[in-house]
Design a protein around this nucleic acid. Structure first.
Lengths: 195, 195, 195, 195
DNA sequence: CATGAATGAGACTTCATTCAT
DNA sequence: AATGAATGAAGTCTCATTCAT
């Protein structure tokens, strides 16, 4: 029953995601994760090599999920503007989810700044995000919506930089009602840059 | 001699800065910090309440130092463009120093996402950065260099968001030679936004 | 089918013997034993009460096997000297097997020094060995080959002491080529003692 | 105060010796050792790298102490026979001490059979014991007490083999009153071998 | 019969903190 | 003012044992 095992792993990762978001990367214990998952302490070590393995798997799982959501949202739209908007609405999904993810993501980036394994996984996430950005910008240029002077690769990097910069600042300010402000302003800045 | 004590504290904070940058917020031990400072283990507990106190003091000290540098650089210039450029050159000082600071800063933001004390200190840093931004944008509007439609407060937030977003992405990519790229593109994006 | 079960137990014991020899009494896990036996983890607990039961059974099984070999070898000979020689050749069978057995045997003796159950099983082994010794010495005295002053019981104890002492020292020195030396010298010492 | 630290280490080793003798090499915990030493759990890790370091130090310490005792006892005597007797009396010191040491020693030999570090330390002990044996045998040959045909190096190996063989068998039989028997018979066997 | 998922006790180890010197 | 020995809480990980399938 490979299926069962895969479900179990995901159950644990889901619990780990919530636990890390609540308590922080280094503070969270395997016991915490087990508690969140409603399983016994030993289970985590049964499905994962060790704590680090849980975290690496978690980073991979969570960034992949985020990417999938973003990709799906963008795919549904046709014009560059629609796609860009869909992308931003998908990224700035809502205060609760953004908080949950960016808390964890900040933890992981802090790790990634010293640990190549985390960095590697994050890079894969970046590549995916950049790809979305590139596609939107290319399309916009073909449509004539965006300036032909913009360098596509560069723009894709900037789009994600601005997004992350905005959401991190928003998170640091810890005021849910500013979410709308950052979403809109982020969109404006990107749009102005691309036109 | 209050002076002596203050020097001692700074000696420890300087060591802590390097130690945290090298090893990470949670990984670093008081022993590490003592080693980096070339003092005995007990000293840290003598000059600081506890580990958390060291870290809070460190965050305050390091963000203040960064702000002072940025402020000084901007002050020396007269036109808005010159000031903006000076600001960015001061922020993107060089790969080594950016790496050292942003590693620590990511650690602290990860903490701040859950701990109000860190958040408070970071907010003070933000306020200072925003003030620099506001002054530049206001001046630019007075000069006629920047668009009068730009909302000054909003712009100041965005400037720092874009900066942090770029430097974090740069750090994650871990390639020193990209520093130049991010500095330049960051400047372009901001400029395009303000004009 | 009682037979099937008995075979299964022996299969596990054989695996346990190799596993303990390789990894050591306390280090070996039930999983190791299962792996060596090519069966699943649960099987061991199915055929044995618990880990201790495996080990007690193993000690009994392995000492019995050793004794049987020695007994058979001695039985084939007729004179005391021949029997003594056969005994020693059977004990000092070859470096590989001696190493395998004495590693495990040392482990068990270490246990036996504190646990009466192991001690009991080892005593049974001793009794068997002493019996072999007694028979040889008695025969030798009847033949006039060995000194009539030798106390038979005492001699039987000494013979095994010398053998074990030699093989343990040989094992500790970890040089296969010394096997010959210890076998020959052991024989000489015993012979000199008996004459 | 290097002295204080050295005393502390010895205090811990002494406690570890008793604890291992009582509970066994693998069964004993660092908590046990701390309890026996009357100190807190952390102390053991303060004075030793880890558990293995405690045990390696213990083996070294205990075998050295044993050797010193034996050496001193032999040194006091003048003739070969006297020295041999003194050696054996020193080795077969009394049931209590022999039991305590050989329990621990069996544990260590079991380890040594797989771990070169333990083997190395034991080898050093062997060399010392063999040296004592060699000196006695050489002297005996010079005196004309022992047969000139005996090979000195070989004899020294055998003496320790017989001693260890006897004491291990004695320990396995777990009857204090047999101590006298093994001591005497061991002496006889060695003497007969040397003459 | 056999499997292997799940449990949870318990061991080692690290380290912030205290405190006598 | 400074040291570093000592404490003990807490976390990770291993593994014997149980039990549903």
């Amino acid at each position: 029953m490979k299926k069962k095992a895969e479900e179990r792993r995901e159950q644990i990762l889901r619990a780990a995601f919530q636990a890390v978001s609540d308590k922080g990367y280094e503070t969270v214990t395997l016991q915490d994760i087990a508690d969140y998952a409603g399983v016994s302490k030993g289970v985590t070590n049964y499905y994962f090599e060790n704590k680090e393995d849980v975290f690496l798997s978690l980073l991979e799982w969570v960034t992949d999920r985020i990417y999938q959501q973003e990709y799906k949202a963008v795919s549904k739209q046709t014009t560059a503007i629609e796609k860009l908007e869909a992308y931003l609405y998908s990224v700035f999904i809502n205060p609760e989810k953004n908080k949950k993810f960016y808390k964890v993501y900040l933890d992981f980036m802090a790790q990634a700044s010293r640990n190549p394994q985390y960095r590697q996984i994050n890079l894969k996430f970046y590549e995916n995000c950049w790809k979305i950005g590139r596609d939107i910008v290319s399309l916009g240029q073909k449509e004539g919506t965006f300036s032909p002077d913009i360098h596509v690769d560069t723009a894709s990097k900037m789009i994600r930089s601005i997004i992350d910069g905005c959401l991190i600042q928003w998170l640091m300010r810890d005021e849910d009602h500013l979410h709308e402000f950052y979403k809109n302003t982020c969109y404006e800045v990107i749009l102005k840059y691309l036109k």
